[in-house]
């Protein structure tokens, strides 16, 4: 890499880091200024709403398989349902993910074998 490209990489890395760290520092100061007994109340309400919505949006995007066809769509639907059912039963983090991936892989394998 030439020196200009190195510079571009460092600016990108620094900019990304600052976008992660500076808003945190801003919110910390905001919370301290408020000096609220309950820190959640001191947060702007839109921010508490936006957090889960960002996760939901990431979920929606991650549901789209890299190659969209009947087999991957079917596997995604069944895998998602399996994940939810195992979560409903166990209320844990690891097992639903493990079973979800296993079911997704199993359905994908069967669908490919069946020529779907």
């Amino acid at each position: 890499m030439g020196s200009e490209l190195w510079f571009a990489l460092l600016v990108t890395a620094l900019g990304t880091f600052l976008m992660r760290a500076l808003p945190l520092l801003w919110m910390r100061r905001h919370l301290i200024r408020k000096q609220a007994s309950n820190t959640l109340d001191a947060m702007p309400s839109w921010l508490t709403v936006l957090g889960p919505l960002m996760i939901a949006a990431m979920f929606g995007v991650s549901l789209v398989p890299s190659s969209i066809n009947t087999a991957t769509c079917l596997s995604t639907a069944v895998g998602t349902l399996a994940t939810y059912l195992v979560w409903w039963r166990t209320r844990s983090l690891g097992w639903p993910v493990f079973f979800g991936v296993a079911v997704y892989g199993g359905v994908l394998l069967l669908a490919n074998a069946a020529g779907i």
Partner: peptide, 22 residues
């Protein structure tokens, strides 16, 4: 190639588990 297709499903599964209580 199948492994590369299957493993990424861990992410939507994880996001679903994080959202499910809501």
């Amino acid at each position: 190639p199948l492994l590369g297709e299957v493993m990424p499903f861990a992410l939507p599964a994880l996001f679903l588990v994080l959202l499910a209580p809501r």
